[in-house]
């Protein structure tokens, strides 16, 4: 495996590290502790529900169908590091849909 974060940490995604010895999620950018790796790292994040029209610029004047997803059908859920505010992940979800536990490592096998 690739261990390019140093200090015994594994770089699981772009900005998310696993500290293999303590079995905890850690921010790759600032080292903020995000909680036990047996749980979803998103539980250690700050979370924000964004209107998709803020990112996907609508036509001007707005139309029913445009470059923006419909805000009643689709929301952008953003996950920030509480330490440095780097954005680990975004999910495009219907409002109310459960947050995805996207990475569940077999910690015994990862070592």
């Amino acid at each position: 495996m690739v261990t390019d974060s140093g200090a015994g940490r594994r770089r699981i995604t772009e900005a998310l590290d696993l500290d293999a010895s303590s079995r905890r999620w850690v921010c790759n950018r600032c080292g903020h502790d995000l909680g036990p790796a047996a749980r979803n790292y998103k539980e250690g994040c700050l979370v924000y529900d964004r209107d998709p029209r803020e990112i996907h610029v609508p036509f001007d004047p707005p139309t029913e169908f445009g470059f923006n997803p419909h805000p009643d059908w689709c929301r952008i859920v953003e996950f920030y590091c509480p330490g440095c505010a780097v954005m680990f992940d975004v999910e495009y979800l219907p409002p109310g849909h459960p947050i995805t536990h996207d990475i569940e490592l077999d910690l015994d096998a990862v070592g």
């Binding site: 979370v47 924000y48 529900d49 009643d72 059908w73 953003e78 920030y80 505010a85 109310g96």
Partner: peptide
């Protein structure tokens, strides 16, 4: 923008408590 993220972002349990009460419209 980073300061705004920290201001707007909510701790996961608080976020989920509200988020889980929402639904898309019936036609969806």
């Amino acid at each position: 923008i980073r300061a705004e993220r920290k201001r707007l972002g909510r701790p996961y349990p608080d976020f989920v408590a509200d988020w889980s009460q929402r639904r898309p419209p019936p036609e969806a």
